[in-house]
Design a protein around this nucleic acid. Sequence first.
DNA 1: AGCTTCGCCTGCTTGC
DNA 2: TGCAAGCAGGCGAAGC
Length: 270
Amino acid sequence: MPELPEVETMTRELRQELPGRTVLTATLRPKALYRRGSASVHRLVGRTICAVERVGKNTVIRFRPSGLMLVNLGMTGRLVTAPNGSHPAGARASHLHGRFKLDGDLRLLYYDARRFGHFYVAETCDFQKDLNVGPDPFIAKPGYFKRVLEGRTAPIKSLLLDQRLVSGIGNIYADELLFDAGVDPRTPAGELGDSASRLLRSARTVLKLAIDHGGSTIRDYRRHDGSMGEFQQHHAVYGREGEPCKVCGTSIVRVALGGRGTHFCPECQR
DNA sequence: AGCTTCGCCTGCTTGC
DNA sequence: TGCAAGCAGGCGAAGC
């Protein structure tokens, strides 16, 4: 499940290759991969990539003289370059849904087994307003969490997954940062008090560490070269149900919260 | 408005 | 061993 660290890793890798390339042909199917209100990728033919950046869990490719394409990988999406005629390691042809032929003998390919990803093509875009993408933990100012969580009654874990409030955090890193902060995921967000600012610090710590390890590979995620991320080896709680807490030895518990598998240490997180 | 549930989709895991 | 059912989960839509 690509979250901020995985998308950041992928975006950095694409940034090495894409800027300066002009789009020669573009196809994306099926239609369901387009986000509502998106223009067709055909519009990008003839335009030249000028920047590749990350916004929350999305990769944004910018073009000159104008235009942008936002890619959200959903759960199993993979955006990767390959020379003409070759396919990236471990990619199945039946999962190939998007092809962008670029100049200089390069293709940008989109694979997605479950097709939960989506694309948004437009001339301009206000991410916060048009796409409901709030600030990520590296952009948010100290005090931001405390301010937006005030009065909220939903469990803090559920709100951490809400991209409108804070972007970039998914199921894995929500569990991991709550452990780092020592906060019970079921805590009503408005009752956090001063630990709200601790959450922001933990988010930055955990996400930064994950980026340094190339992200987490649970099932599908792969680095650009087909290798796996390493951070899953450092998970304290995610996927460790029944295993001893690395701090106190208590068995890690798994509960369902808002329909999501949620892992935590009942001793360290209160 | 805020909170919760549902549906999309397919590969992997589990159970018989 | 083989097959069917169950499960996972980002995110938008719908329901309360």
